[in-house]
Every structure is written in structure tokens, then in C-alpha cells.
Design a protein around this nucleic acid. Structure first.
Length: 595
RNA sequence: GGUCCGAUAGCUCAACUGGAUAGAGCAGCUGCCUUCUAAGCAGCAGGUUCGGGGUUCGAGUCCCUGUCGGAUCACCA
């Protein structure tokens, strides 16, 4: 049964019977811990139709509900708050419904489709901490919408062309001596990233040297041999020079292999990749169409602009005076291309840092002006930067936290802890590896996802490698603990599948509390989806685990002599393990059988 | 300068979108493992929710104003 729905309709009936007037949305909230009850109706808004004081309104409703609903066993009134105690029978029905429904929390597929973009790295730079937040967020939002029955297409756009790519190519040609990932033993993305840094180093040195010879700075920047080499490569690339294309493909191939390894360890994946090299020309036609129909303005020098001043924004260039595209042009083209590739998607979610908020505001507005209805359904999933205790991450200053390194550190920490706690006695090395991988990455994912996306957050390496308290491993541990109980139950012949919801009242308060939390799961997923916030799911899972642990410490299971009560507790445990597993799955986290 | 975002316990974060005495975790202090996994539980302590006005039965939440942090406003991507 759906307790909230039923309670709501019972209250509605009570209001109809007592006050005979329609009322808007009822305000029901969890009861504060200090009062008896689980659900609280806020009665202040009702005084208009009850024509009574808040206390009297609440009391009248409470009495009616106890007498007529069969759902409310007792109530108390504090000021205008009606605190209701739900019948144990109803709680058991709730548990029964959850227990009987293997897909509790999931909405059956309904055919609606959505696209989620995330990651979208630059091929010159290995993935770092910021990408981890980005990837975990995007992946999780995709999973959350899938749970709600959507078909979700996970995509990324790879920034694989342009002068910056040519920089690492030029540096590799000049200083690489033919080094490859194989000969160097380096991951491909790290190798290419190294030559991007190399470029910068030599470039600065060359500029400095030229300036020492008396060349002006701007001129020196153009004349530096390494820069000339990079520009030359870009021109050849655009002219489709076979040698340059081959080099470009080779080095990009290294990067993709490196990224793929990182994605695999992160546990994220994509259904389709978009490459900027294939899409960067595609927005131009749309912009030219926009010029024809008067949406955009062409200036005398040939550049094309959109005027958004009426919408409170600025003017924005869409085509340079030489007719070439800018970033915005490409994004227009890519957005339209994607809706052509996936005609059924109703919207796109762009997981991109909040420094691009203005960009996306403009992009969506332009798409709207071009007459695309889907513009309304585009959403910029904007997230705050991840700060370090030392301040901002800056690649030039070497303060970037590398994704691979960080994952490795987390797993190492998990391994140490696991050994220190003496958990490894009965495990094979393989099992230990699997477990510590789960814990290390779980800790990392939970850490990055538990914070509201739009807030910037602090990553303190020392504190972030916590495996206790408000962490992923805490929840994973709770799951493992329950699995252990279920194994014991099975050994004792307690079968959860035969449970028929036999009433065993009175329920323990901790049991009610856990059922109450379990019951919240579906609405939490909806809330998370509505707000594009995996943090809602993360914090819910934590609370459920915490509630279960309280139950676990206060209510014995196998010491219980009443077989029906014992069975209920095992069923309850089973349901919690199941929901924890599902909820963590939405965060991209796995859950161990023992730890 | 314009626009947008943020500010909550020593630290990291919550607060069901306007509800009751603002909650967790970490750090600190006290207890609980011959009984289902102590990566746990119970407790103590910790707050002028950045300041000042306002709106109302009720404000961390909404409005105005100020302060402090950040982002953004390129014929860069």
C-alpha cells in the first residue's frame, strides 16, 4: 500500500466531512523526534476553512481520523501541528508491499527519452578531481532518470581538435624521440599530457630568449619555433594532410585508451561519443539560416551576431568576420545534431562546471530563438568547483589532483583499513582486491556526490579518505552486515519469501522508524531527479543505513522467541539491504556481501 | 561596473522548498564487543544560520539593503 497517498486521502475525507470546503495541497511532514507519531499535518493553513483556532482544527481532525480512518491509532496536538500515530497494521502492510515488489522504487519504462552529457574532456589533459565530480554527477543523474523509466543516452563531446591539440603534437615531434605508451610504460593520456606541458615549457623559454634578443613580446610569441610548428600542424590538419592526420589519430588513440582505463575504474560509460573534429563545422548552416530569417545580424565586416540585450544579456558573436565558427556556433550545431540523432529525446542535460552558466543561458536562448522547441527542455547541470585546502587546482602550478592517482590512493587506504581491522582472514587475495576497490571508490563517489551539486566543495585529502561516519563505506558496511544476518537466517531456516505480513504488534519504535525510511525511497528518487541532485539519494541512503544501525543495536533478531517477530525483522533487514543496494547503484556504487 | 552563485557548530555538509527547540559526520570528552560484523551504537559539549531592516500566525528559507568569497560579461575553448 502507499501509506502517504492513503493518509492524504483519509485526511482529505476528514476535511470534507468536517469543514465541507475544498482545500489546497496538504502539508504533511515527518514528526519531530520529541513528539509521539510519525506523520504531522500542519494545520495553520486550514484555519481559513475550519474557522477555528489551529489547535481546535487539529484536534477535530485527529478525532475524526482515529474514529473513521482505520489508519491513525492515536494523535497529539502541539500548537497547530497534528501529530499522528499510524496503526502498526498499516506499517506492516507498507513493509509487505515493499517486500513483495522486487522493483520497489523503479518506474516501468514509459518510452520517454533523455540525453545526459558529461565528462567531455580535453584530450591534452589527463582527467582530474573536477572530472571525477563531473562524471559521477552525470552518470548518477542518468541512472536516476533510468530508474524513473526514461531511456537515457549518455554522451560526451571530446575536444579533439584545434591549436591546443597541435601543441602537444608539435612538442611530441620535437622532443618525443618517437616515444609511445608502450615504450614509456605511461598511460596514453598521461604521455600526451606530458607533451602538452612540454610545449608550454619550451614555448616560454623560446619567447624569453627571443625577447632577450630584442624581439617584442607579441612578436616573440608568434615567432617561437615551437609555436610556429603548432600553427603549421593546425593548417595542415585543416588541409587534411595525411601525415598530420595520421599523427593526430595516433596520439588521440593513445589518449582514448588512457581515458577508457580511467572511465572503467570509475565505473562510468557512454552510449555515444561526439567528436568536435566531426561537429565543429556543423553550426554554421544554422547560423546562416538565422541570418536569412532575421534572427541574427550580419555586420559590415561579415561577422554574425545575436542581440540578446532585450533578454538582459549581451550581444554575442556567432561567426567571425572571416566566416569561421566560434565555440557557441559549434554548440548550436551539436545540440541540433543530437536531436536529429535521437529524435525521441525530449531534452538534454549538460553536466558542465558553473563557470559556463552564462554560456548555456545564451545557448538555450539562441536555440529557442531559432525555433527549436527542445530548447525548453535543455538543462545545464551546473556544479561548483572542487577546491583544495591549498586553493584552486591549477595545472601550471602542479596542484592538480589526478583522477587515477586519487582513485589509487583511496583504494590503498581502504586496503590498509581492511587489514588493520582484521577483516581479511577468510578472504582470498582476489576477494580483498575486489572489496577494497569497492570501498575505496565508494568512499570517493559518496564524498563527491553527497554535496549539493551547485555548491563548490572542499577536498581535503586527509579528511576525504575517511571510511567512517557520513561516508560511502558506512552504508556499504551496513549492507554487508545485513547480508551476514540474512545468511544466518537462511541457515536457521527463516525464509523471507514465506512471510505473509502477519501482524506482530506492537512494533518496536526502531522497526517503525526503519519502515518509515524505507517508505520514503520512491519519493526521494523523484526529488533527486527533479533537482538533478544525486545528493538527495546519497543523504537518503545514509539516513536509512543509520536508522537500520539503530534498530540493529537496540532490537535483537535471533534472540527473539516469537517466530513471527523474528521473521518480520529478517524481512525488514532484507528490505533495507535491497533498498541500500539500489540507492547506491544510482550513485554508481557497489555493495559488498561482507566487509 | 552589470549579471549569476555561495555564506549555517572549530572543520565538512544537511534541513522535505515558509513550519515546531536548526540536524548529521569529523575533530574533543564519556560509556558499550565471551550474545546477529564495533567500518557500529548511546551520551556530553559545541549556533546571534554573515550584519541590518521588512513581509506573517511562523523566516536559515521570501523581499530590500549592506559585507565577504567565487564565477562570468572575448571575433578563447
Amino acid at each position: 500500500m502507499n501509506l502517504d497517498f492513503t493518509l492524504r486521502s483519509e485526511i482529505q475525507k476528514a476535511i470534507d466531512a468536517l469543514f465541507r470546503q475544498p482545500v489546497g495541497q496538504l502539508q504533511i511532514q515527518p514528526t519531530n523526534a520529541e513528539f509521539e507519531g510519525s506523520h504531522t499535518l500542519v494545520c495553520f493553513p486550514l484555519v481559513k476553512i475550519s474557522k477555528r483556532a489551529p489547535e481546535a482544527t487539529a484536534t477535530a481532525l485527529g478525532e475524526y481520523l482515529v474514529a473513521n480512518s482505520g489508519l491513525v491509532s492515536r494523535f497529539n496536538v502541539v500548537k497547530g501541528f497534528l501529530n499522528m500515530v499510524i496503526e502498526d497494521r498499516a506499517w506492516i502492510q507498507v513493509l509487505q508491499a515493499i517486500h513483495a515488489n522486487p522493483s520497489f522504487g523503479f518506474v516501468p519504462p514509459h518510452g520517454r527519452e533523455l540525453m545526459v552529457e558529461y565528462s567531455s574532456p580535453n584530450t591534452n589533459k589527463p582527467l582530474h578531481l573536477g572530472h571525477l565530480r563531473n562524471n559521477f554527477l552525470g552518470y548518477s543523474v542518468a541512472e536516476i532518470y533510468k530508474a524513473l523509466g526514461y531511456t537515457v543516452h549518455k554522451v560526451q563531446i571530446i575536444n579533439d581538435r584545434g591549436i591546443h591539440i597541435c601543441k602537444s603534437m608539435a612538442a611530441w615531434q620535437a622532443y618525443g624521440n618517437g616515444v609511445t605508451p608502450e615504450t614509456s610504460g605511461l598511460k596514453g593520456d598521461k604521455l600526451v599530457g606530458r607533451y602538452y606541458v612540454e610545449f608550454d615549457k619550451h614555448y616560454r623559454a623560446q619567447v624569453k630568449e627571443l625577447m632577450a634578443q630584442g624581439v617584442a613580446e607579441t612578436e616573440a610569441e608568434k615567432q617561437a619555433p615551437i609555436m610556429k610548428a603548432a600553427v603549421d600542424l593546425l593548417q595542415k590538419w585543416e588541409a587534411k594532410d595525411p601525415d598530420v592526420l595520421a599523427l593526430w589519430q595516433k596520439m588521440n588513440g593513445w589518449v582514448y585508451a588512457g581515458f577508457e582505463a580511467t572511465y572503467q575504474r570509475m565505473g562510468v560509460d557512454f552510449d555515444k561519443l561526439y567528436f568536435e573534429s566531426e561537429t565543429y563545422l556543423s553550426g554554421k548552416d544554422e547560423v546562416l539560416k538565422g541570418v536569412e530569417n532575421g534572427t541574427f545580424i550580419k555586420k559590415e565586416d561579415g561577422s554574425v551576431w545575436v542581440d540578446l540585450t532585450a533578454d538582459g544579456l549581451d550581444q554575442k558573436v556567432l561567426l567571425r568576420s572571416d566566416g569561421t565558427s566560434v565555440y557557441m556556433t559549434q554548440d548550436i550545431g551539436t545540440a541540433i545534431l543530437r536531436f536529429r540523432d535521437f529524435p525521441k529525446i525530449e531534452g538534454q542535460v549538460y553536466t558542465v562546471g558553473n563557470e559556463q552558466e552564462y554560456h548555456f543561458k545564451v545557448l538555450f536562448l539562441i536555440l529557442k530563438k531559432l525555433g527549436f522547441a527542445f530548447a525548453e527542455k535543455c538543462y545545464h547541470l551546473s556544479y561548483g568547483m572542487v577546491d583544495l585546502p591549498t586553493g584552486k587546482m591549477k595545472s601550471r602550478e602542479g596542484t592538480v589532483v589526478d583522477a587515477d592517482d586519487l582513485m589509487e590512493e583511496m583504494v590503498e587506504e581502504a586496503t590498509q583499513q581492511t587489514h588493520a581491522l582484521g577483516k581479511v582472514a577468510e578472504m582470498t587475495p582476489n576477494e580483498i582486491r575486489e572489496l577494497t576497490e569497492m570501498i575505496g571508490l565508494g568512499a570517493l563517489k559518496f564524498f563527491l556526490l553527497k554535496v549539493d551539486p551547485q555548491k563548490r566543495m572542499l577536498f581535503d585529502p586527509n579528511e576525504s579518505i575517511q571510511l567512517q561516519g557520513h561516508t560511502g563505506p558506512f552504508i556499504q558496511y551496513t549492507h554487508a552486515r545485513i547480508r551476514s544476518i540474512l545468511r544466518k537466517a537462511a541457515a536457521l531456516g527463516v525464509d523471507v519469501s514465506t512471510w505473509e505480513g502477519t501482524a506482530t504488534s506492537p512494533l518496536e519504535p526502531a522497526e517503525r522508524e526503519v519502515i518509515f525510511k524505507l517508505n520514503q525511497y520512491p519519493q526521494k528518487i523523484h526529488e533527486a531527479a527533479r533537482e538533478y541532485s544525486p545528493a538527495v539519494v546519497a543523504n537518503y541512503a545514509f539516513e536509512l543505513a543509520k536508522g537500520y544501525n539503530q534498530f540493529y543495536q537496540t532490537v535483537p533478531i535471533f534472540q527473539e522467541s516469537d517466530a513471527a517477530k523474528l521473521q518480520l525483522r529478517v524481512v525488514l533487514s532484507h528490505a533495507v539491504a535491497d533498498v541500500l543496494k539500489k540507492a547506491l547503484r544510482l550513485l554508481g556504487m557497489q555493495v559488498p556481501e561482507r566487509m
